[in-house]
Design a protein around this nucleic acid. Structure first.
Lengths: 180, 180
DNA sequence: TCCATTTATATCGTACACGATTATTTAGTA
DNA sequence: TACTAAATAATCGTGTACGATATAAATGGA
């Protein structure tokens, strides 16, 4: 590797060697998303901790309040997480007395997850969580709405994109489109 | 458990007991952010893996390309991470030959972080990463711009909010405003 | 029926992420 | 000077995350 570390300046249009233009942190959409997401969970933390919930666990409860019992795979689909993340997370929630886990008698591969009475009781505390949240978010309702709409569109598109070019990896010869 | 799990219907305006309204997953801004952020790093992963970078490590490189050497605290300020996260992350990057870490001779408390030649060489690969990214993001430039602007505002506000009510926790008696 | 395939979850190893604590160095002050 | 306080990283314990692999149950033919 004698010629790689020192890039030939002649190949860069109008920049001196060593000054190759690089995306700036504060211009990166992904970093804005990364920061915003991290900060939101940081705002949630003190509100959820008294309830014995982490933020991902809170998301699981939201999913279960919408539909219970749910199987692990459906929770993963709803939250964008896989079993490697959900299985230990659900075990912690089970240990905390918030949910129950049991094999589906009709299909022993599946695991049914369901809130306990204690888990159901947490519904009553959600109003306070939402109120606490609203105070920390410095956006007007219209902005929140627009932001949410754009993000929803982005998420839908990304989900499609990431699911597409991942058939099984065994069909080695993909079209010339997999570079995009 | 005779009176708790079954909420008195008279206390809830217009909802049946056990049907306390709870925020829906697909209406939560925080969940949209959480999903979008996770999906973006998922899009980045296959682009960065060949370079020997994870997504947070990529962010560190972006920060270092803007200013090097940087001390750990400044990197943490720029990225919103603390030393508990950065120290092991930087050690891994050092082990990978991407950065160097050394105590500041002028102030032995500080640790100076700097890209190696190998780390600098990665700048040349960033164009491909950005190109690969653009193909995966299903938004028009105007939408990206608006989204980024709103997120930047949100991040700024949240940073302020989370930094504020965390004086030292030792002044136990805070005003009646800390509930907000 | 038998077996390859698919489906569903669990497990393992690695890498963030953070609150709390510790250790070391510097700065400030009596 | 000596001594406290502040600043700075590192460390520890716990909890996500995910790729890769393993295990077991159901399914679909030959």
């Amino acid at each position: 590797m004698t010629t790689k570390t020192e890039a030939k300046a002649s190949e860069v249009p109008a920049q001196a060697a060593g000054a190759i233009p690089v995306p700036r942190l504060d211009q990166q959409l992904c970093f804005a998303l990364y920061s915003a997401s991290g900060l939101m969970t940081r705002v949630y933390r003190p509100l959820l901790a008294p309830l014995g919930l982490t933020y991902p666990q809170y998301l699981v409860m939201l999913a279960l309040w919408e539909r219970a019992p749910s199987i692990v795979g459906d929770l993963g689909e709803a939250l964008g997480l896989d079993s490697a993340t959900l299985t230990p997370l659900l075990k912690r929630m089970e240990a905390g007395g918030l949910v129950t886990r049991r094999r589906d008698p009709a299909d022993e591969r599946r695991v049914l997850v369901e809130p306990t009475a204690k888990g159901q009781a947490l519904r009553g505390a959600m109003k306070d969580v939402q109120d606490g949240l609203a105070c920390g978010v410095p956006l007007r309702p219209a902005e929140v709405k627009a932001l949410h709409a754009t993000l929803t569109q982005l998420v839908a598109g990304l989900r499609e994109a990431t699911a597409d070019d991942r058939p099984t990896k065994t069909d080695g010869a993909v079209s010339d489109k997999d570079k995009l």
